[in-house]
Amino acid sequence: MKYPLLIFAAGSFLWTSCLKEADFTGLVRSTDRIEKRFAQSMEWNEQHPFKNILVSGEEYKLLITGDVHVGSSSTINNYLNFLERAEENDISSLVFVGDISTGREKDQQTFKDHLPDPAIKPSFVMIGNHELYFDGWKYFYRLFGTSTYYFTVQTPSKKDLYICLDSGSGTLGKSQLQWLKDILETQRNLYDRCVVFTHNNFFRDHHTASTSPLTDELLVLMDLFEKHHINMVITAHDHKRVLNQLGNITYITLDALRDDAKNATYLILKKDTQESLKSGSTGFLFSFEKP
């Protein structure tokens, strides 16, 4: 008798704690497959050329965060504080590394409504697993378009490449991986620095329930990034900041920005001329600020 009661208690706890944020329909089979999202993203990309941000100096800053989870709690103070910081002149653009909302249409819309005017301060939004919940891809596609793309930042003398990938389903999938390989093979050498963003954290630095890419895929990506001299890989998802270094690549997992996160921070990434001169350096300085 005690086992059914325990199962009922555990089930009730999971149900009440997760129902608001999680959509369990994707546990057995998801309709929003990565290949389909990638195909739709490429269609969108054909109509909307990748953005090139021009900056006047050799140094610039990006403001980067993940796991905002708009709609998960009644307030979005951390998000608003982040946007306030973004208004300052030293910030060139904003990057959101997935899980911007609960996935629900109204929450994705609320997130978008607060973004700065893209003509003044461009924002680059990536998909996380939460954007797939509650049929969320449909709304993400309508509001933000692509989930796989890149953007570039051009200084007077250099140009840097920022690649944004869709790992919401726990894998990049065959087509997106091939796209990434093609970009790196054909274009990497045209740029000074290269940073890759994707939602799912890569490594298990501590015991966590956060999904990482399967080891088969992880090894392929790590090898690919090393081969093409990627400078940084920035992920989120795990809600806990971790820095890893292998060779010249810095792997960063971001803290969450959601209001109920205990240690909410965001990342300021600065392209630094002095740092760029150092051998083996990423070319960036970075720091974490509390919202």
Binding site: D23, Y133, G168, S169, G170, N200, A209
Partner: peptide, 12 residues
Amino acid sequence: QSGFFNIRVNYF
């Protein structure tokens, strides 16, 4: 499969 703990499974 991938993404089981993302609650968004995908064939791997």
